[in-house]
Design a protein around this nucleic acid. Structure first.
Lengths: 334, 334
DNA sequence: ATGAAAGCGCTAACAA
DNA sequence: TTGTTAGCGCTTTCAT
């Protein structure tokens, strides 16, 4: 058995309260006593039991992180951002994958509650009433990350996906593209990918071009590849705006296969600015938002909530900008 | 405040011991009593406090996972494998990033100990004596994953990197390549990338070709790209065997830039079979090992340790095989 | 089959 | 400045 606070107290000839005090720096302790305690701690190789601590103090210094799937490259970057900031503030994270399934998500929120996490970072393709109910029931500080709550009931960190898609379209129009197609899947009604598509469609109407959409079963490389192969065969648009970088790379390759040059014949613009966008040939122009920052900001937001720091807004909107690379660098206007 | 076991006991008109019994199924309880307890639980929306449970039972159903960096695509896949199996066995994971720094790793092992995790999954570029000491001190069941312990002191799950690199070389030789260069960084002495390089060098000597190595500062796309640009300019080898898929994609593009055709002029073979290998053009031949399985097997191994299940071997060696794709599909022999 | 009671290792009043 | 003493919400003997 390893040493307890009681062993340290005895070794140092003080009470356990004093040991607790020097460990947590929660009250002034005489220098000399403090030294004795520290020595005892070192001698016994004492490590406080975080579980006991959690039970007594009702704070566990751990936060729950629920994501659809860490193995998606951009999610991993985002989680890294979360973990780094958590570490800065001495928090640990319990990571769970939900596969975006509501029942699974609800269950996980429940278990996080049982685990007495101090707070929750929640990511989901789209927020449902069940989620809200469970949050309420668990009485847990929650920050949504990359997950939109149209009614703004829960604090959240997002980008303006509608605007971002519109910006991307404007950019392509300015480049001289007369026709643009959006490439993405049809997810739930409020899903992130839907917002991007809507942003595109609205902007298309605004600038007076047809809001044509190439639908892919899933938003992955393979799925997009087959959808694009058939879609691009006849009358390909001048530009492709894709829901994410992975689909954009599929677009790049589909064009190649059909002997359409990028950017000469077709321009391609991705979304998310993942590492992938720089590992493609031609390099990919993409709507940039640092995934790492996304996670970092969300976690920082949660620490503010947990430490009762003043908060300017409960609905953080992160900036986005277009990262211009080779896949759109051609001048069609001349 | 939410309900406690005591509230449930009172509501059901039984003692808390009985409530505990029905929750944990740890002794026979009369059907009728059980029903009363279950009803009370439902009525009060009772959720057991996992922290209190952990303190009393000394088991937290939590395992620590220490990785160099989740944001590396293959690590994320591996972590997903861990989490899925953990979930199957009702464990949760606390995920930490160490950036592969020994001090950081030692600190994390310590905090995981404080957190009373039931076990540890440890990944590191190379195992140092400090790690072993800390494991011993923490008295924690540990499984190394993708981390070699040459002395076999700690249970581990690995592939045979030496053999895998040798196999890759043999494959290229059989394809008719007369010269092959290895591309990778010089990491620590026992690092995984070093084992791959050594396997290559030994095999090269065996088959009688020069063991030429192209060294990259880091094993990333950008870093490899610049190293390759200068290295391939004069007298490029017939084939490139790279330390991982990311570097392999860099190799693909570097060749392209220098007007070397792949696989016609230079064959390229990667390592790890990440999603990336299928998203490259030409698609990448690679030494395959499912990263997901890597994590899943390691976690399953740990559960065996924790449940005292019989264990066949403490040093699990996962199989690998060459996944043949376009980047090596040319016949040089005719 | 059920209950009573003693911890698990710590924090946080409250005293002194 | 330090010590005493209750708990925190459970599990787990030991009785009954």
């Amino acid at each position: 058995m390893s040493a307890t606070i009681y062993d340290v107290a005895r070794e140092a000839g003080v009470s356990m309260a004093t040991v607790s005090r020097v460990m947590n720096d929660t009250a002034v302790v005489k220098e000399e006593t403090k030294k004795r305690v520290l020595d005892a701690i070192a001698k016994l190789q004492y490590r406080p039991n975080a579980i006991a601590r959690g039970l007594a103090s009702k704070r566990t210094k751990t936060i729950g992180v629920i994501v659809p799937d860490v193995s998606a490259a951009f999610m991993a970057e985002l989680v890294r951002g979360i973990e780094d900031v958590a570490h800065m503030y001495q928090y640990h994270i319990i990571l769970c994958n939900s596969d975006g399934q509501v029942q699974q998500e609800v269950d996980l929120i429940g278990t996080m509650w049982e685990k007495q996490v101090d707070g929750l970072l929640f990511m989901s393709p789209s927020l449902k009433p069940e989620h809200i109910d469970t949050f309420e029931q668990a009485q847990l500080p929650v920050v949504l990350c990359r997950t939109d709550d149209p009614e703004k009931r829960i604090p959240s960190v997002n980008i303006n996906n509608r605007q971002a898609a519109a910006d991307a379209l404007d950019y392509l129009i300015a480049k001289g593209c007369k026709s643009v197609a959006y490439v993405g899947a049809k997810m739930g009604e409020r899903a992130l990918s839907d917002q991007r598509r809507q942003g595109f469609e609205e902007a298309a109407v605004r600038v007076g071009i047809a809001p044509s959409v190439i639908e892919t079963p899933e938003e992955t490389y393979g799925s997009a590849m087959s959808a694009l192969h058939s879609a691009l065969r006849i009358d390909p648009p001048r530009a492709l705006l894709t829901v994410n970088d992975e689909v954009a790379v599929a677009a790049l390759h589909a064009c190649q296969d059909l002997h359409l040059r990028v950017p000469g014949d077709v321009m391609v613009i991705g979304f998310d600015n993942t590492k992938l966008s720089q590992m493609a040939r031609p390099e990919l122009t993409t709507v940039a938002q640092s995934m790492y920052d996304y996670g970092a900001v969300a976690m920082r937001f949660l620490t503010k909530l947990l430490r009762d720091e003043p908060i300017a807004t409960y609905t953080v909107v992160l900036p986005h900008q277009i990262e211009e690379r080779a896949s759109t660098q051609a001048n069609l206007l001349t």
